[in-house]
Design a protein around this nucleic acid. Structure first.
Lengths: 218, 218
DNA sequence: TTTAATTTTTAGACTTACCTAAAAATATAA
DNA sequence: TTATATTTTTAGGTAAGTCTAAAAATTAAA
């Protein structure tokens, strides 16, 4: 089994690999984990000993197949619990992350299986991110940034890129939430701002906002 | 906030106080926690510093009002999660303890409140033990040992005293589970063994078994 | 390509929660 | 009540995971 710290490192490296595509630098891990690079070096060497990742001094790290499986398992639990919190306990989707961060470390494969069943085998969490299956396979998300849409296209809001509390609160004031239909009425060329419609309301959003919102088109 | 270890100590001392009624000796804690007395001394001194219990060298310990509140909160979470696992995820009542042992440490009062709501404000866990309310108040259980019943009395099984896996498995083979109605047909004076009826089946159980089963009469 | 800046690692230290072994206090028995 | 047994504490040590400060390797710039 793995300690809480080990699981968190594996999860962080998993996410960073998806962003960076290449070997993950020590500093990138330190930044994401909000810890010091020297601590990362220690842990990375420990995880390398456990065959969870390959590591060469000064060259960054890469998860092994096994390491990826463990990380995906943690992420699976995290996202399943988020679905539980939102669907069953009626939490708002901007309130569940911290709690899921704890719940993801509960050890019991039986529990995960039954929770998955109870929730109806969901494929996406409340932020629109895909839930890895029990083998650790993660289906590609078809979500795209709102800023990628053209005029008159519409999309369903499936998540956010940076899930800072401020941003999520801003969305709430605009009545934008998971599942909202967003219609692009117009785009300003010079600053990329958008005029959009959500439910019955029309308003402007900045390019920065549009680049932080994920939507699904179909 | 409290560490996982601190919460476990407070919980253990809380349970021991109910059993022993007097100051809780270091060795009793060590035995229950499956740790060494010297470790207990360390932790007990730390918890005394935090005003969670009163402690005098060689005299045992006693929880403060605050310490009791924290312990009751952990137990509340443990028992609520057990209800969740059995009622919602269809776990058998002999499978939930280890998992609840982990879930009880999840920190979020909001979560506890919503879970309680979701479960319909249950008053007893699947083993028949009362669930402390949000203020830490624990209602007295009216359950008694099966061995305390007289001939021809009947009771509803609400729990077990020692919840070892072996014993729980034995109960399953006899089709005794939470909610089973048990009728005492006869008692042997010389060894205290009982002839009982459960559902349609009649059979003998030893005194030891009868002293390990809690029932509720009314 | 030599120097400067950045990244990464090493070395040594700290905290938590545990341990063993020995000493001290308390309880029990002769 | 003295001696023995038991309980409890103290002293010192270990492992996990973190830190700071300094050294080493790599990358970027002059």
């Amino acid at each position: 089994m793995f300690t809480l710290a080990e699981e968190n490192y594996l999860k962080a490296i998993f996410h960073l690999e998806h962003q960076l595509k290449s070997g993950v630098p020590t500093n990138a891990i330190a930044e994401r984990m909000e810890t010091k690079p020297s601590s990362v070096t220690d842990m990375v060497q420990k995880l390398a000993d456990k065959q969870m990742l390959s590591y060469q001094k000064y060259k960054g790290t890469q998860l092994t197949v096994e390491g990826r499986k463990i990380a995906a398992g943690v992420i699976r639990k995290h996202r399943l619990w988020e679905v539980f919190l939102v669907d069953k306990l009626n939490f708002n989707w901007d309130e569940v992350h911290e709690i899921a961060e704890q719940l993801e470390h509960i050890q019991s494969s039986e529990l995960v299986g039954r929770l998955d069943e109870f929730l109806g085998h969901p494929e996406f969490d409340p932020h629109g991110d895909p839930i890895p299956d029990k083998h650790g396979n993660l289906k590609l998300t078809q979500k795209k940034l709102l800023s990628e849409l053209k005029e008159n296209q519409h999309g369903i809001c499936v998540g956010v890129k940076e899930s800072g509390t401020d941003f999520l609160k801003y969305l709430d004031t605009k009545k934008i939430s998971i599942g909202s239909e967003i219609i692009v009425l117009g785009i300003e060329d010079f600053d990329g701002s958008m005029n959009i419609q959500v439910e019955e309301n029309q308003f402007f959003i900045s390019k920065k906002t549009a680049e932080n919102l994920y939507v699904k088109t179909n």
